[in-house]
Nucleic acid binder design. Structure first.
Lengths: 152, 152
DNA sequence: TCTGAAACCACCATGCA
DNA sequence: TGCATGGTGGTTTCAGA
């Protein structure tokens, strides 16, 4: 865990709001010089607090209108079957996120498809063919809201 | 749905890999001039294919080591209860993502907390106090892998 | 190709242990 | 003194027309 002062927190809040802002723009808001702001941002990156920036794509405009969350319980789960499952899932391009979880299910997958029939294809030919897949729960995404979340 | 050519796809792939790359750097990789690359990126933004850039934070380094996914089924779900629920959830800072879904559950929440006992506080004082909450399913995040996903 | 702005570096000043 | 931080000024690189 890394200790950050209130200035770092303010900078993070600004960047969470809009990650494309320049150091000078943020500096103006916080009454800090551009290099001072820039050095803090750089330090946040070097210490790994900021891991990077991710593109926020509109998959619908790319023709992928369907997003489904799958909860997957493995039928057999020794160490090998986890590795096997993860290797298999890595080969499915429609899988956008793989979350290894503890609870009712073993994995949560975020799957994108062009439409429902395309999703059926992915489910039948890809997901269900993976080694060790037991129970599968599906939820179709209707809408999504991301919020900044706590930072300190 | 927006039609993109193969060059746009290559640019998107580069930006998905690393969204901080400059237009000139991507242009060098694709044998394109800096302005040509820049215009294409700009067009992708203006058409809304690229919605923006999101900071990728390491919440663990910020002292939030626990991430839990909650599946929530509403006990009563007329139009009012959906609105009530969404208003209530918006007031909980620990909730990072709100997904309205169709299937076994009505909502999926991504909740971050400092540790398990902090999560218990959020669950008892915040989540369970929301209006209309029925069944709740919890899964603790162990590890997560994000993949580029299909773009065309 | 061209211009203003941003990133980035070197160097010095200040405040505090 | 030593360390952490901020400021100034200058060069390189980029965004944007």
């Amino acid at each position: 865990m890394i200790e950050l002062d209130s200035t770092d927190h303010l900078i993070l809040r600004e960047l969470i709001e809009d990650a494309t802002q320049s150091a000078s723009k943020i500096g103006r808001k916080l009454n800090l010089s551009q290099p001072a702001t820039w050095r803090r941002i750089k330090r946040l990156q070097e210490t790994g607090v900021i891991k990077g920036q991710r593109l926020d794509l509109d998959r619908e405009k790319l023709g992928f209108g369907v997003t489904v969350f799958l909860g997957i319980k493995l039928a057999t789960k020794g160490r090998v079957s986890l590795d096997d499952f993860e290797r298999a899932v890595a080969a499915i391009p429609e899988v956008q996120t793989v979350e290894h979880i503890l609870g009712v299910y073993d994995y949560r997958l975020r799957v994108v498809a062009r439409d429902i029939s395309d999703f059926e294809r992915v489910l039948r030919r890809r997901i269900m063919m993976m080694p060790g897949v037991g129970d599968v729960e599906a939820n179709v995404l209707l809408s999504e809201e991301r919020r900044p979340g706590p930072i300190g």
